[in-house]
C-alpha cells in the first residue's frame, strides 16, 4: 500500500510522465479569471510555487491579473506581502478591487535585501502570497525563490520585464502580459503544454 501512495506522489510531482494523460488535482488557488483558469492545467495558480509575470512596461494590466487572487486571500485573512513595489499602491483602487488593506504589508528594500526579504517571507509560511519585483535576478535567485515558495507553501509572484522571456526560468508558471493588443499569454506551465491561445485583458477601467 505504501508503494502505491509513493507512486501517486511521484505522478503528482510530475517526476514520472504517464503516456496516457491523467487530469491533475485541481488547484485551490483559482486566478479569478475564468478564461485564464481554463488555460492552466490545474485550473489555477500552481500552489506553493513561483509564478512569473512578464510585462513589456508598466500600466498594462499587470495588477488586474492578480487583484482577484489578492482580494480572495485577504478576505480569508491571509497576509499579502509586496516586497519593494515600484510605486505606491493607490489605496482607493486596491479597495475597489476588493483587497482588504489590513492584510497588506509593504516591505521597503532594494537589491539583494529585497530578494532576501522575499525569500524570508516565502519560507516563513505565514503569508498567503508574496509579490516581488526582482531586478537583475539571475537563475539562481529565482530558483531560491521557487524552493522557498515550496518550503513555505506560499504563492509567489515575480514581476519581470518581457525581455526575460527568452531566458529559461525555474518558475512553475510564466505568463506574458501584452500591451497591444491587451492580452495574456501562457509561456510555460508545469504539468502541461502551454496553450498558444491568448486571453484578452482590458487594462484600466
Amino acid at each position: 500500500m505504501g508503494a502505491v501512495v509513493a507512486l501517486d506522489d511521484l505522478l503528482q510531482q510530475r517526476r514520472i510522465w504517464k503516456a496516457q494523460p491523467t487530469p491533475l488535482p485541481p488547484s485551490a488557488q483559482p486566478t479569478g479569471h475564468a478564461a485564464l483558469d481554463a488555460l492552466l492545467p490545474t485550473g489555477g495558480w500552481p500552489e506553493s510555487a513561483l509564478s512569473e509575470i512578464l510585462m513589456p512596461s508598466e500600466g498594462v494590466g499587470e495588477l488586474q491579473l492578480l487583484w482577484p487572487t489578492l482580494a480572495r486571500l485577504t478576505r480569508n485573512a491571509e497576509r499579502v506581502v509586496l516586497v519593494a513595489p515600484p510605486h505606491v499602491p493607490y489605496p482607493q483602487a486596491w479597495q475597489v478591487a476588493g483587497v482588504d488593506l489590513r492584510w497588506l504589508a509593504i516591505i521597503q528594500a532594494c537589491g539583494r535585501d529585497a530578494l532576501w526579504a522575499t525569500e524570508q517571507c516565502l519560507r516563513s509560511g505565514s503569508c498567503g502570497a508574496v509579490l516581488c519585483w526582482p531586478q537583475r535576478a539571475d537563475d539562481r535567485a529565482l530558483r531560491r525563490l521557487q524552493v522557498a515558495a515550496e518550503t513555505g507553501q506560499t504563492l509567489a509572484f515575480a514581476y519581470r520585464p518581457l525581455q526575460e522571456a527568452i531566458n529559461p526560468s525555474p518558475a512553475a508558471l510564466r505568463i506574458a502580459v501584452d500591451a497591444r493588443p491587451a492580452q495574456v499569454r501562457v509561456l510555460k506551465c508545469r504539468g502541461g503544454l502551454p496553450s498558444s491561445a491568448a486571453i484578452p485583458l482590458a487594462a484600466g477601467q
Partner: peptide, 19 residues
C-alpha cells in the same frame, strides 16, 4: 517574521497601507 525583517532592513522597512 516582521521582527526579523525589521532587524535587517530597518525599523521603517515593514509598513501597512491605509486610505
Amino acid at each position: 517574521l516582521r521582527e526579523r525583517l525589521r532587524a535587517r532592513l530597518g525599523d521603517e522597512a515593514v509598513q501597512g497601507l491605509r486610505a
